[in-house]
């Protein structure tokens, strides 16, 4: 379902792993930059210097643009920050991919969003306030919640989370991880991959695979 074969980038040493359906993977990078770079490479947004990245059986850097876009409709990405469309309201951002790929109707999306917000400990008023806000006015926790709901609404086969629990208070962190785990268990075939540079934020996740990335040896230089 997702595999890295001898992948090397500017910040990361060679990394190889293979995860099958239903896998829960924890990827720990040596630095924030390395974690960000790994996420970008896994999302097909940054070509590695060498190696092969396969998602759902396809080498994402060898497929055509059309094939890449089609492939990504089956992948949910939860970025650490940004990643929202600036000229849409938050509710429109949440609805965009699910409606575009015809995965859910508007009514189903409303129900799904309300249930997810509730699971995160937010009441209806707080939910309405978040959904009516412009993306640039969201607080970090709210932004993270919105990106999670948006990705989950697509019912993806593969979920990739970047720093899902970083920078959150303990209560919010527990709720966010609980939501991700509940979503993972909802489908037997779904793979969830958590990328972080701070392993302590993911200690409550018992992963089936643990991948420790290595930094590139840049030498001391003179």
């Amino acid at each position: 379902m997702i595999s890295f074969k001898n992948v090397q980038t500017e910040w990361l040493g060679p990394v190889s792993f293979d995860a099958e359906k239903g896998g829960l993977i924890k990827v720990v990078a040596p630095s924030k930059e390395a974690a960000g770079e790994f996420f970008q490479v896994a999302a097909g947004l940054l070509a590695p210097h060498m190696g092969e990245v396969r998602i759902l059986g396809e080498d994402i850097y060898a497929v055509t643009e059309e094939e890449y876009i089609c492939l990504m409709s089956k992948v949910g990405l939860v970025m650490e920050s940004g990643g929202l469309i600036s000229n849409l309201l938050t509710c429109e951002n949440v609805a965009l991919p699910a409606l575009f790929h015809r995965k859910k109707s508007l009514e189903q999306l409303e129900t799904f969003t309300a249930q997810t917000l509730q699971a995160l400990g937010l009441d209806a008023d707080q939910g309405r306030e978040i959904m009516a806000t412009a993306p640039n006015e969201l607080r970090p926790f709210q932004g993270k919640v919105v990106r999670m709901i948006r990705a989950m609404a697509m019912e993806p086969e593969l979920m990739i989370y970047e720093e899902i629990a970083g920078g959150l208070r303990d209560g919010d962190r527990a709720n966010v991880i609980q939501l991700a785990m509940t979503f993972h268990r909802r489908s037997e075939d779904r793979i969830s991959m958590f990328v972080t540079y701070d392993e302590s934020t993911l200690k409550s996740i018992s992963a089936s695979s643990h991948i420790a990335l290595e930094a590139v040896d840049r030498g001391t230089g003179v």
Binding site: G44, Y68, C70, V75, H101, M154
Partner: peptide, 9 residues
Amino acid sequence: DTLRAMGIN
């Protein structure tokens, strides 16, 4: 790129 990564051309 955000749109591409969501499978939207």
